[in-house]
Amino acid sequence: MSLTIRDLQFLDWSAIALELGDCETICLRGESGSGKSLLLRAVADLIPNEGTLELDGQDREEIPPTQWRRNVAYLPAEILWWEDTVGAHFGEPPTESDLSRLRLSSDAMGWAPSRLSMGERQRLGIMRMLDRNPKVLLLDEPTANLDEAASEVVENLILGYIEKRSACAIWVTHSQSQAKRVGNRLFLMKGKSVHPCTEEVAWE
């Protein structure tokens, strides 16, 4: 899978260009409020934007918006639930082994969403996203509410998915060690624009 972003413009931002190849993950760092989620939502075509977005060379205008978003999946920082049970949010509910791998109870699918802890919301949110078999993942701090050990499990799950499906990802993170573990390249978000940068500059 490849994602090409050219001249992407939204609100009063400078045009953004990014290129993601097969199995590639780029990490994005930026101060809070720098607009990382705006960028991810623009790429998912959830907010008005202009410019070229291509998935495997196919322009987004040629792809219906619902299909685009199923392929280019946005994982928000805060996951919300609206159906009566967790399971009702899934097309194909995850198996027990999937659940236990993420240290989730095997009957979590029958739970009311209000029962979920922050960490459970986040892990189930990731499963809910992967359930749609996306080709590009736009991850807004996917491990923000998780402890060290759970973070690692989630990282491995996502990296494993990227590997298996030849997917690619834009991964917003604040953690230098996580960026090192999961990212192929690093970008910094500053002054309403995105710049490639080195580890030293990003975490100076």
Binding site: T66, R69, Y74, P76, E78, L80, W82, R132
Partner: peptide, 21 residues
């Protein structure tokens, strides 16, 4: 419910599906 609608859309639901309830 704008945040919920957006997450429904993000999962590939159509505008109609997301607003039906």
């Amino acid at each position: 419910n704008r945040a919920i609608i957006e997450q429904r859309l993000a999962l590939g639901q159509s505008a109609r599906e997301a607003t039906l309830p």
